[in-house]
Structure formats: C-alpha cells, structure tokens
Amino acid sequence: MSSPIIELKHVYRSFKTGREIVPVLQDINISVNRLEFLCLVGESGCGKTTTGKIICGLLPTSQGIVEFEGADIASLRGDNQRRFRRSVQIIHQDPYASLNPTQTVSEMLSYPLIRHKLAPHRRGVLQRVRELLDLVDLTPVEDFIDKYPHQLSGGQRQRISIARALTTEPSVIVADESVSMVDVSIRIGLLQMMMDLRDRLDVTIVFITHDLALAKYFAWDGRIGVMYLGRLVEIGRTQQIIRDPQHPYTKVLLSAIPDPDPEKTRSKQHIQLRSEDIRRLTELPPGCSFHPRCPWYVDGVCDKEVPELSVPFQSEFDVEVACIPLERGAELALHDA
C-alpha cells in the first residue's frame, strides 16, 4: 500500500464549555490512503465533524499529530503551509448555511481563484469558473453563472459548494453530510458525482455521514470507520463490516436499522441493548464507553480497561476493533436483556 496522504496519530481534542472540559475526541488513529474510499460513520455528536475539521487543519488537536504526506501539519510554514491549506478542503453539506447569500455563483467561485492566484487573468478566471460548473454538472453554464444562492435548489447549492472546494485543486476533500440533508431523490446523485470526481481529478474523498447504508454505498470498495462517543471503535473493509461486523456497537447498530423492504425489515432480528442509558461526553463511564449498553459486556474487564484499536485475536478479518474481550479472543456471550 502506498504511504497515507493524511495520518492522524493519537489525536485527542477537547473543548471548554463554561467550567467543564468536554473530551470530544480520544485517541483517534486513522490513515487516509491516497484515492481510497473512506467513510466515517456514527451517531450525532460522536465527533465526526470534529475529526473532519482536524483532518483539514481547521481545528488544532489538543494532543496528538496530524501528518500530511508525512509532515506534521503543525510544523508547516510558508509555501508548504499554503500548499497544505489548498490541498485539503472540507465541504459542509448543509445547503442552507454555507453559501454567502450576497454573492453570485461566478463571484463565489472567482474569489478563491484570484486570492490563491490560481488563474492567470480575468479571462482565465472566467474560463476556470465555467470548467468548474461543468465538472459539477451545472450545465448549461449560462443558466447558473449569474444566480444567487436563493435562486438555486438545495441540490444545486450543494453542487456549488463542491465546485468551490475544487477551485484550489485539492488532493483531499472531506465531505461532511449533515443530518438535515434529507432529500432522498437527490443525495445519491451528488454522491455519484463526487465518486466520479475522484476518478477525473485524482482527489481522495473522506465521506462523513450518520447513515450506514449510505456509507456502504460510497465506500463499497473501500473502508468504513465507526465512531462511538469520541472514539473509533471499528475500522475495516466495508463489505466485511456490513456482512460480519465485529464490534458489539457495530453489531447492534446494523441490527437496529430498518430496511426499505417490508418483508426483510419485519423479520429482522434486533439485538437488545443491556440498557438504554446514553452517557454524555462529560460523564463517560470508566473502561469501554459502550459497556453500560453493551449486550456482550464482561464484568470486571469492560468496566475497568479502556480498549484500543487492534486486530481481534486469531481473526481472519482485515479489521481493527476496540473491544477487550475480542482482542483477547474471548467468545462473546450475550447477556439476557
């Protein structure tokens, strides 16, 4: 495998709110390989967006390092720092929040081109704006170039956000899908377009979503990382995780999600949680943070030690999980609910 383009090493991040310190990310280790399909999934508040911002250097870590092409991004200066900033872009897929309502499409796309001196002169800028609109399938270009955000549909606004991220010719894009984006009929089109861009422009895309089925679709030939309360609990090949999830949280999650197929979804077996208790980040339980809910919890182990990501004992799978009983090769036994 080629060297990773981005690497997070033992990354921690916390925020101060009032008198409390909220530990939002703990010991995150991820390598993003060049041109792989990588998807981070997890429920609202588990730290996906925070991880995305750290990957892009928009948010410093509290502890741990982020490397871009092997160099610690905190040590980058001058041209190298500018190159990193241009090379790694984030798209917040919230069509309502992220576009400036007072700028036309053409202004929005020209500005970064001029600021980063990415196009030689006015004609060059206009030429590039047209290319970008074409790349995101907003054609005929004339229909869009002078529009303001409010004159565009949600899907078209998202395409503009993507085009804007492409102005700096990035090698990595973090695409963060917000929960509010619910237009089923257009989201797949956007995702397909981004998958095409990867091939056409050699850009690596890290996709962030709370929807495991969407993650499966995007990263079918790649990897999924599952997050729970600020930690990565399982990461591995998508097809394997979907077929045979290893970590208890991933197992419960997959069993809980309804299917858009009446017969399948009504006959699905649901794994019962030990308790429904959901901890807040400020009162994390000791040991594995999933242990109060985990149906496979081992008394005296899971509530004592914090598991780290590792390959399960004697596993034939190419997957890492953070679960101590699995790491030691114990047979998981379900508790009675």
Binding site: D183, V184, S185, R187, A213, K216, Y217, W220, Q239, P260
Partner: peptide, 17 residues
C-alpha cells in the same frame, strides 16, 4: 435509497429536483 444488503446497491437518483 441505499440498503444494508450484503450485495452492492445499484442506485439511481431522480434527475432534477
């Protein structure tokens, strides 16, 4: 709509909005 089937989904979105 994507599914959690073990096979790859062949999806197609509706054009326009």
């Amino acid at each position: 709509v994507p599914t959690l089937d073990h096979a790859q989904d062949l999806l197609q979105s509706i054009p326009g909005s």
